[in-house]
Design a protein around this nucleic acid. Structure first.
Lengths: 351, 351
DNA sequence: TGCGGCGTCCAAAGCGGTTTGAACGATTCT
DNA sequence: AGAATCGTTCAAACCGCTTTGGACGCCGCA
């Protein structure tokens, strides 16, 4: 059933039917009711392909998933973000189109999107320092919202981010207040913007208490369970091992825990752990009592909001760059406790 | 730059230009070369919206992500599957459109897809027993491939699945051979087809060795880290605790490990664990030596292959239902070992 | 010489909607 | 009463491509 058929059945012109369906004012309310009823009765749905050609709008948002060609990693955060964004799209009648882009060929992917006209805007995932996609998209002229930010980019752009620096600063201070002095940072890849900010927060907190940073306690790589394990294992074998870990994500956090327990130590007593909790659906941080002390911010909610920002920008091109900074909660769980004796004793003896 | 402009610039008709670009034989090779050169020079890309309307094909594949409205869970397996499928789509020039569907309203989502004409086919994720989507899609007339199978569905349909029954049967036998007699099964939700098959494999192996199943050792829920932890914790507190666990996924497997170690037991010595390893990018099962003994099958590869099957079905509608069963490897890691003494002693004493 | 066939190319008709410009009767205003 | 306005409807153009049904010149064959 297409528009013309429906119009014929109603004894009306396609023009009128189209207008009735789309809520234009110049159609008799009685007629509109008839049209609406008939459309429902015949289960009429306008053909999206035709609408898109006629209006020039794609009614679709693109998500380009960067897949590092080296590691073939797909960030699990991505699935929950998408789920959140998808909810928003559903509400506003947008479709979501996903493209997998090996990180060398991203240019072409974005340019193609533009010239083929398959999306009205894109969400940029996993921004890096001075991310080249930002000037690129601006040049191409596709509306976009970045999930995260890009240190070193001066021109304004729309973004939604968690206050990563503050979150890790607070978490670090929390551990310092508990008496910890040897704090390890298990971070993501440090060309990723979020990782830079987290490290900054960590270093700021250390500096403000006059504690020297120790490169041996700073690790940075893909945030896999195994990397968390390996890094923690190595650090715990140091002559002066850390008593606390700040970990970028629940997943490497599980690895850190595995290393700790494998060495016969107890989390929350011998070693403290704070993770960043994106509230991924398969990694609930306990039920009533959180397992991990964590900086928490829902990535799903971020998806919902980023999508809304983008739709707003698309539907009103006058809209200037939109910025939204979400604060992470610091929630206290069972994975942190006072620094263990030995360390405090060592500290009393002084250097 | 659109087709008409390009044609004018070349002094040709749009017809000829279109044909030259699309490789039709009735155009002079010299002309074709000119057209191709001009297209490249002006960076011409045909407008996808127009192609779609004109050809009636969407050149897009739909993925409907079921999000259980109760738990808001997005299976992390999904991200890697998508990545695999996306690679295939890229090669064949298809786009991927994603829809989030609350599991009550799935009907409407699929019907809409059809009548709006935005996809040429869909991949069905997370099939359940006697899944209603299979007859639905067949009725609607959208080509589809199921990732997994649906027990209880008689009519033929296209699917790609891992041999879950066999994988878990072999894993169970492997543990039995090691002398274990109290085997726990930490399974996914048992209305999900894969979970049913895994349980069947587990039970078959037990039965063939004359070992009674024990409902207290069978757990079934969402495969979260926390659920794995909780279930293992409870089982290990039983008067007659299991000495080995079969776990549906790496993620709850991490939870099981956490429970085991928290009780002061050692994985691979006191308690054996076998997981199913989907080779998710963020859950590499160790590097040289696998951490977990596992039944292994790449979900990313499954995505690649399922996408190829669907494209084949779409481009050749004569193709009958396609079926592909992937076998999982059983790889031996550090998480399994002979049943501990106490258990074997008890066994020697007999019942 | 006449005709069918072949190689190239083009005009025009879709695809299924939206949107512009105009028609037309009824109502209001002067 | 005639003009202007309003409310409602429609015909036709258009979005940018594909595809059908010729057109045209040239060659080979009878």
């Amino acid at each position: 059933m297409n528009l013309k058929e429906l119009a014929t059945k109603l004894g009306l012109s396609p023009t009128t039917v189209s207008r009735a369906l789309n809520g234009y004012p110049e159609v008799n309310e009685e007629t509109r009711a008839r049209v609406l009823a008939a459309a429902k009765r015949h289960n009429y749905r306008p053909n999206t392909r035709a609408i898109r050609l006629a209006t020039g709008r794609a009614m679709a948002i693109g998500h380009v998933v960067p897949v590092s060609s080296k590691h073939e990693m797909v960030n699990p955060v991505f699935a929950d973000f998408i789920a959140g964004a998808g909810e928003t799209y559903l509400r506003y009648g947008y479709d979501m189109v996903l493209t997998i882009a090996p990180d060398e060929g991203e240019d072409r992917v974005y340019r193609d999107m533009r010239s083929r006209g398959i999306v009205d805007g894109v969400i940029v995932h996993g921004p890096r320092q001075r991310d080249p996609r930002i000037p690129l998209l601006r040049e191409i002229g596709i509306p976009f919202v970045v999930h995260g930010r890009s240190t070193g980019t001066d021109e304004p752009y729309s973004w939604l981010d968690v206050n990563n620096r503050r979150a890790f600063q607070r978490a670090t201070e929390f551990l310092l207040d508990l008496g910890h002095r040897r704090l390890a940072l298990i971070n993501g890849l440090e060309f990723m913007d979020f990782a830079i900010r987290r490290r900054t927060g960590y270093l700021d907190a250390l500096a403000s208490r006059g504690i020297m940073q120790d490169p041996a306690l700073m690790f940075s790589d893909e945030m896999t369970e195994f990397n968390g394990y390996r890094a923690a294992r190595a650090m715990l074998a140091l002559p002066d091992p850390p008593t606390a870990f700040l970990v970028s994500m629940m997943i490497p956090g599980l690895g850190v825990r595995r290393a700790v327990e494998e060495m016969g130590l107890k989390v929350g007593r011998d070693v403290s752990i704070i993770i960043h909790d994106d509230e991924l659906s398969y990694f609930s941080n306990g039920e009533d009592v959180p397992i991990y002390t964590a900086t928490r911010s829902s990535v799903r909610e971020a998806g919902r909001q980023a999508a809304e920002m983008l739709i707003q920008i698309i539907s009103n091109p006058e809209t200037g760059p939109l910025e939204r900074l979400l604060e992470a909660d610091l929630i206290i769980g069972q994975s942190t406790g006072p620094a263990p004796r030995r360390d405090r004793a060592a500290e009393r003896q002084g250097p």
